[in-house]
């Protein structure tokens, strides 16, 4: 499944970063999912536990922030939100637009819990 590959990529990145931190267990992973990224946020949330299970961040929860598509219209010069998936300016109808945001998936931050408490699998 597509979102599983993405979830595994998130897990790999976070496990690598967390290993360098020694800040306790990862409790939350905050991710931005762009509207043009081709990833379905609900599906990603559903498969994340399967990807993280058995790793150093097993049990961490994934918090997804949806990022809408924003474009700059080169015709009317406005920064607008197009009506996905049509990359046209909703103000003037021009298709001469430049995508400003919404293409990416980004791991924004990781939240660590205090030590002790929950059981974790070690790597």
């Amino acid at each position: 499944m597509h979102e599983l590959s993405i979830a595994q990529a998130i897990v790999d990145e976070v496990v690598a970063v967390a290993a360098l931190q020694r800040s306790g267990d990862v409790e939350v992973v905050n991710v931005d999912v762009g509207a043009l990224s081709g990833v379905e946020p609900d599906a990603l949330g559903m498969v994340f536990p399967f990807a993280s299970g058995g790793t150093a961040i097993a049990g961490a929860s994934l918090k997804i922030r949806k990022v809408p598509a924003r474009v700059r219209c080169n015709s009317c010069r406005k920064k607008v939100r197009p009506d996905f998936p049509f990359l046209v300016c909703p103000t003037c109808g021009s298709d001469n637009v430049q995508v400003l945001s919404g293409r990416d998936m980004v791991i924004r931050s990781i939240e660590f819990g205090s030590n002790g408490g929950r059981q974790r699998h070690s790597k």
Partner: peptide, 21 residues
């Protein structure tokens, strides 16, 4: 606040998910 000892920490990453690929 998870209680003693210490506070939880937030680490800002701003790293693309597919950065490795």
């Amino acid at each position: 606040d998870h209680g003693a000892p210490g506070h939880s920490k937030v680490l800002t990453l701003e790293r693309k998910v597919l950065a490795g690929n």
